[in-house]
């Protein structure tokens, strides 16, 4: 079975939203800044509820923040 991974565009979206800080996003999503850092660096996959809260903080659909892609593909995208 092919391995999949959760990827996110939080860093890009923060930049597009008036360079929102991690602390501001954490406050909007109701979590600690450390959790945002862990999610942003793909070390922690958030629950569905938190993922929705993060998307809500940016005012975009969930799919615009998170995606579930094959691991190889994600490596290629990161390397691009």
């Amino acid at each position: 079975m092919e391995k999949y991974t959760v990827r996110n565009k939080i860093r890009k979206l923060r930049f597009q939203n008036n360079e929102m800080t991690q602390e501001q996003l954490a406050e909007k999503a109701g979590v600690t800044r450390q959790t945002i850092i862990a999610i942003e660096s793909a070390k922690y996959s958030p629950s569905l509820e938190l993922a929705f809260r993060i998307a809500l903080a940016f005012g975009v659909p969930l799919g615009d923040v998170f995606s579930y892609d094959p691991e190889d593909e994600s490596n290629q995208i990161i390397n691009k």
Binding site: V31, A38, Y44, L50
Partner: peptide
């Protein structure tokens, strides 16, 4: 400082 325990904690 916010002393919250979120889902990761």
């Amino acid at each position: 400082e916010r002393y919250i325990a979120d889902e990761r904690d």
